[in-house]
Design a protein around this nucleic acid. Structure first.
Length: 877
RNA sequence: GGGGAUGUGGCUCAGCCGGUUAGAGCGCUUCGUUCACAUCGAAGAGGCCGGGGGUUCGAAUCCCUCCAUCCCCACCA
């Protein structure tokens, strides 16, 4: 039977088999179980492209590690997946699709448009969920819900109305960021600035009687069309005498006042600024203070409107070009300088946004931010790593009002109705039949809400709010939010704000923040660069476990990470290593049940590996609790490869190939027990391979997913034996080292004489078979005394024993002398270092006792070694 | 202008609220395949832990400073 197990791990067949098994077994389902502690994780949504990308794979992997770990640790787990934060992108996508069919939004109408969008989301949402399953996500996707489902809509309306009634939501003409391509307002957070090189144009404004002029600098000459003032600093001596007078806007001919405002800096440009309240946030503020009126000159799609006179209908760029020409002709252009400055762009379509005055809905953030700040400040909500709390404070303390209305169709419609007859504005949770004041017809606000408004309610809207559901009661506040640092402002901050305001409680305990996935050169992965690595291709080629493992290891939380094939390959190799280790154990486990370990006579190697397993269990658990996923994964990796495989399996072989009996039974039992613990520890990181191997182990339950997380067990902790064994391993390493240095052929077996330190004598005796096997000896003789060792021997001084290999079995005396001399030097340096510390009165007085003891024992060991080495050298001479 | 991060062997990164001889993977050198695994094993080379200063018995780790690189926020027309 067992011989049929192939030598190389085949991830594909295992992955295909397992996801089905888990789903059928109900392993993902959240089962109401009041005895357990709830653990609820809030996760970012499937992305809108319908294609799993690396960043998303990272998100999902981290979440899944936590969920699997918590589930095994006895928590009742729940995911809250599946909103769509990308309403602008979704809308753009649908518009694009329709354009290919020769249709526009207006052709199909709102209802048809939304139907198409839903269909699109259903298809792409389903596609990405299937991709996540391939990655090993254990999310219960049946709970999947989207922003616009019925329940979440109720929550959104309720929150909107409640904030409105408190005066925290208002409508007004404010300057907002407008994307002429998406044709919608954007919040400040949705604007990305990028540096562009352009020019600074210096333009002269003459007074009506030409008695004086003032020159201003501008980066946007086309906005001169909307100028309604020129501002100077009130303290600027150059301009004091013209404040209150008027100047003529060149080319246009409009007469505008010269006003004084503190906003103007005297040492930049000419110290005079043109004021365009309709198209600049700062100018808008100046306008409010000085009474300069708003003139809007752009249409919603970025063309010049009727206020632009003869320029009407031009695009912004065309207008700029023509207007500059006209300024030149009019002799108003003083000079032009090259200039680089930051230009705001739409975070979705990356076109230049236009600041303009528009009638929009806003959330007043200041009053809401205080509880949100306090929740983090007090430690009630924790960021991991902590430093992201600073980023959060920095933003939250300087937060400005949030523009929440979007001129899109895909999204949650604002719950406000207007009566055209009497002008009444009705804000309520459900649609009124007629105007509540005059009984006239009502129409709903055309706009939808910023998707982050509804996403911000996610932790409670998905749990049933506004109803007081048992789920809400049980799971809120949720436990952990996992997300990238790039959406702290968009989403995390808003969830905290709404959680505190609406529920009066934080939305989650911990925000676990990760970095961005980059390519091998450290560049952001992007479609335009073509440097993206496709997770699905990686899964296909190397396996989901390898991908997951390489996303978790090799970097620490919150830092950006690079993925490259070599790294994934090494994770794949690790899979193969575990697979083969398990294959070996299974092939050697024999038939029938294995005995309980308690009743067995364990030898020193068994005790060592059991003790080490105990230590690793504790470390890994601690690391996971502290969100140190990389450390946890790396510790399991090291333990499996460098201890379990490289040493313990090797040490197990003699007993396994020996006769049946207690020794064979106990080594089998220990091999299986430790492997079982290993597979459990590794399961959150590598779900597929661990599940497959776990189910093949004798005595395993059906699924590792629902098995109990290993616990440190004092009954299997043997500190003295474990320590001794490690010193024995040092002897083996040293002997191998000497053999390599002396170029002893591997096939050449030697005798090894050991003169053991009394403390480790028993250990050496017990482990002599291992030394023999692993150090290339045909005999290991434990000698009472040096005198029992053949005179012509090479000597290797270790802590537990001095090992001797007879010369005739080796080579060169001179080489040996040189080696001993260099050893003496090395040990001498160690003694100098150690005794230096111990002669330091400060050290003795202030260092902890434990450290001093350790140092003393190190020193005596080193001195002991030195004596032996010197004696040895003398013998050789 | 404000905030944050990073700098450790050839490469990618761990370690960092002080305490063995600074670790890993990849790469490199030498040797080794009937006996779990060549997607492997054994041995090895390779590091003034960015520079300088300070605190301390003791600093890759804490503080200051400088240099270099990167990110976020704000934004002067």
């Amino acid at each position: 039977m067992t011989e049929k197990i192939p030598k190389t791990y085949d991830h594909k067949s295992v992955e295909n088999k397992l996801y089905e098994k888990w789903e059928k077994g109900g392993c993902f389902r959240a089962k109401p179980n009041p005895g357990k502690t709830p653990y609820c994780i809030v996760i970012p949504p499937p992305n809108i492209t319908g294609q799993l990308h690396m960043g998303h794979a990272l998100d999902e992997t981290l979440q899944d590690v936590l969920i699997r770990y918590k589930r095994m640790s006895g928590y009742e787990t729940l995911w809250l997946p599946g909103t769509d934060h990308a309403s602008i992108a979704t809308e753009l996508k649908i518009v694009e699709q329709m354009a290919r069919e020769g249709l526009t939004k207006l052709d199909v109408g709102r209802e048809e448009f939304l139907n198409r969008a839903w269909e699109w989301k259903r298809v792409y949402g389903g596609r990405i969920i299937n991709q996540l399953k391939k990655l090993g996500s254990s999310c219960d996707w049946e709970r999947e819900r989207f922003t616009m489902d019925k329940n979440c809509s109720r929550a959104v309306n309720k929150v909107f109305v409640s904030l409105y009634n408190k005066g925290l939501i208002y409508k007004g003409n404010r300057i907002i960021n407008w994307c002429p391509d998406c044709k919608t307002a954007l919040s400040d957070a949705e604007v990305e600035y990028e540096e562009q090189s352009s020019y600074l144009w210096y333009v002269r404004y003459e007074s009506p009687d030409k008695s004086f002029s003032v020159t201003v600098a501008t980066t946007r000459p086309e906005t001169i069309l909307g100028d309604t003032a020129v501002a100077v600093n009130p303290k600027d001596p150059r301009y004091q005498k013209i404040v209150g007078k008027t100047v003529i806007v060149p080319v246009i001919g409009r007469e505008i006042p010269v006003v004084a405002d503190e906003y103007v800096e005297t040492d930049f440009g000419t110290g005079a600024v043109k004021i365009t309240p309709g198209h600049d946030p700062n100018d808008f503020e100046v306008g409010l203070r000085t009474g300069a009126p708003v003139i809007r000159v752009f249409t919603d799609d970025g063309h010049i409107n009727e206020n632009g006179g003869e320029y009407k209908g031009l695009t912004r760029a065309q207008c700029r070009e023509r207007f500059v020409e006209d300024l030149k002709k009019a002799g108003a252009l003083v000079k032009t300088e090259p200039y680089t400055h930051n230009v705001g762009t739409c975070y979705r379509c990356h076109n230049t946004v236009e600041p303009l005055v528009s009638d929009q809905w806003f959330v007043s953030m200041k009053p809401l931010s205080n509880p949100a700040i306090e929740a983090v400040r007090s430690g009630s909500i924790k960021f991991a790593p902590e430093r992201f709390a600073k980023t959060y404070f920095n933003w939250m303390e300087n937060v400005r009002d949030w523009c929440i209305s979007r001129q899109l169709w895909w999204g949650h419609r604002i719950p406000v109705w207007y009566c055209d007859d009497c002008g009444e504005v009705i804000v309520r949770e459900s649609a009124p039949e007629v105007c509540t004041k005059c009984g006239g017809a009502v129409r709903q606000d055309e706009d939808v809400l910023d998707t982050w408004f509804s996403s911000g309610l996610w932790p409670f809207s998905t749990l049933g709010y506004p109803d007081k559901t048992p789920e809400l009661e049980y799971f809120y506040p949720t436990s952990t939010l996992v997300t990238g640092y790039d959406i702290i402002f968009f989403w995390v901050a808003r969830m905290i704000v709404f959680g505190m305001e609406v529920m009066g409680k934080k939305p989650f305990d911990t925000v676990f923040v990760h970095g961005i996935v980059r390519d091998a050169e450290g560049r952001k992965m992007s479609k335009s660069l073509g440097n993206g690595i496709d997770p699905l291709e990686i899964i296909e080629q190397y396996g989901a476990d390898a991908l997951r493992f390489s996303l978790i290891t090799g970097n620490s939380a919150g830092n950006d990470m690079r993925v490259h094939r070599e790294k994934i390959e090494s994770a794949r190799n690790f899979c193969n290593k575990i697979y083969n280790a398990a294959r070996f154990v299974i092939m050697n486990a024999g038939e029938g049940p294995l005995p309980e370990i308690d009743g067995l006579s364990l030898d020193i190697a068994d005790k060592w590996i059991l003790s080490r397993a105990n230590a690793v269990i504790k470390d890994v658990t601690d690391n996971l609790d502290a969100f140190e996923l990389n450390l946890a994964a790396e510790k399991v990796y090291d333990f499996i490869w460098s201890e379990y495989c490289d040493w313990y399996i090797e040490m197990a072989k003699p007993r396994l190939s020996g006769a049946d009996g207690p020794a064979k039974q106990s080594v089998r039992a220990v091999l299986v027990k430790v492997l079982r613990d290993i597979l459990k520890l590794l399961h959150p990181f590598m779900p597929f391979i661990t599940e497959e191997l776990y189910s093949m182990l004798p005595g395993s339950s059906d699924t590792v997913m629902l098995s109990d997380w290993p616990k440190r067990d004092e009954a299997f902790s043997f500190p003295p034996e474990s320590e001794s064994m490690q010193y024995v391993m040092d002897i083996i390493r040293s002997v191998r080292n000497i053999r390599a240095e002396m170029s002893v052929p591997p096939a050449k077996r030697t005798n090894i004489f050991l003169v053991a330190h009394p403390q480790y004598r028993t250990a050496c005796e017990e482990a002599s078979a291992y030394i023999m096997r692993l150090a290339g000896a045909d005999r290991v003789i434990i000698a009472e005394d040096k005198r029992d060792v053949p005179a012509n021997s090479i000597s290797i001084v270790c802590k537990a024993a001095e090992a001797f290999i007879p010369f005739d079995q080796l080579v060169d005396i001179e080489k040996e002398k040189a080696r001993i001399k260099s050893e003496i030097e090395r040990v001498g340096r160690e003694i100098a270092r150690s005794s230096g510390m111990l002669n330091n009165t400060g050290f003795l007085a202030k260092a902890p006792q434990r450290v001093i003891e350790e140092e003393k024992s190190k020193l005596s060991a080193a001195e002991d070694m030195l004596k032996k080495l010197e004696a040895r050298l003398k013998e050789l001479n």
